[in-house]
Simulated assay, not measured.
Amino acid sequence: MGTTALLIGGTGPTGPAIARGLEARGFELTLLHRGTHEVPEVAGYEHLHGDVFSEEGIRAAAGNRSFDVVVSAYGRLRTVAEVFRGRTGHFLSVGGQPVYRGFFDPTRYAPPGLPVPIREAADLATEGEDGKSYRVARTEELLFAAQPEATHLRYPFVYGPRQLAPREWCVVRRIRDRRPFIILPDGGLALTPFGYVDNIAHAVMCAVDRPEAAKGQIFNVADSEALSIRQVVELVSAELEYEWEILSLPAELAVPARPLMMSEVSRHRVADVSKLRNLLGYRDVVPPREAVRRTARWLVENPPEAGGYEEFALQDPFDYRAEDLLADWWRAAIADPPDLGYVETPGYGKSYAGPGTRNVRADTRI
């Protein structure tokens, strides 16, 4: 019998790519999941079905089997780690970047805002702060108590095929509905950690390939290039050959853009993936700009159901009447700005030489 691997999950956005990667490396692969959602990409592997959120369900499905590698990408991680204590040579687990202090609430820092970039050693959420973030941090503690040599991967928001909260659908559906504009907060300049499905799966494989460097370590995972909201919108628009107005509003007024902001304010959340690159040799297998274009095309060919789960998860009502009223009000508000009477119009500083540079009087002082 060859080397064996157990993938817990396997039917979500990154699951099929992880499964293919393990098979390509010669593992005899088994999937453990609830069995309520099957996808054809993983139909050829052995499947175990059980409740992966309970100890009883995991033990009943897996029995006394051991595996050379266990990849826990779904279920109750702290329980999975305990059940497979002493039953695997390499335990790899998936968590999330909300573990960091201030990920959801930037006012945890003074002045508000996360460190940029966020490194693995950054402050974690503590008890009494955001409940979800603290639970993620507590799970990591319990994980390493049960699996001291685990490799833990802090996932970003994931995009690509089969995503159940597809951020790009907020753009693609409006294009399909022939909207003349899209509202973005603060020019759409905010950065948020995202990872394309194939890139995320490749990061997992990098840890599988270099176990001695990966064991006992935590890694941020994300695309190496962080794209702004506006860049995503422009890439989708170009891929679908659609021209429209990008209407910038202050974040507190850009209510229709909340599903794209994924936050109550416009701010940066940037994951530092240098540890993943330096220790495990990670590189994006699909450049993020190409990945966004692929995702847009996939959504055109596989559109979510109107009013279905994906739109429920995004919390985007696509209320075009309200968007039109907001746009009309904003345009009227800025149509006639006051004459501020500058004696001398402010410049960008003498070291700036880009677009908008104004002529200044000669100054012989250097």
Rank of each mutant, 00 (worst) to 15 (best):
R277H: 09
A291E: 10
R297V: 07
R269V: 08
V273F: 01
V286G: 09
R293I: 10
R277F: 00
V270H: 10
V292N: 08
A251T: 01
S274V: 04
H268W: 12
L260T: 02
T295V: 09
S266M: 04
W298Y: 14
L279A: 10
R277L: 00
T295Y: 08
V255K: 12
A257S: 11
V265F: 11
R297S: 12
W298S: 09
A251K: 06
R283V: 05
A254K: 04
R277K: 15
R289W: 07
R294F: 13
R283H: 14
A257V: 00
L299K: 08
R269F: 02
W298P: 03
P256C: 05
L253R: 14
A271Q: 01
A254P: 01
V300P: 12
D284H: 01
L247T: 04
P288Y: 10
W298N: 06
P259E: 12
Y282N: 06
N278D: 15
A251S: 11
P250T: 11
R267H: 13
S248M: 05
L253A: 11
E290M: 10
V273A: 01
A251I: 04
R293P: 03
N278Y: 02
R293M: 12
R269M: 09
V285S: 07
P288W: 08
V255L: 13
V273D: 00
V285H: 12
A271S: 13
H268S: 04
L276V: 05
L253C: 00
L247E: 04
S263L: 08
R289I: 00
R293Q: 15
R294Y: 13
S274P: 03
S274K: 11
A296Y: 06
D272A: 06
V265C: 10
T295N: 10
R258F: 06
R293T: 11
P259T: 08
P250N: 10
V286I: 15
V255G: 03
M261W: 05
N278M: 06
R289F: 00
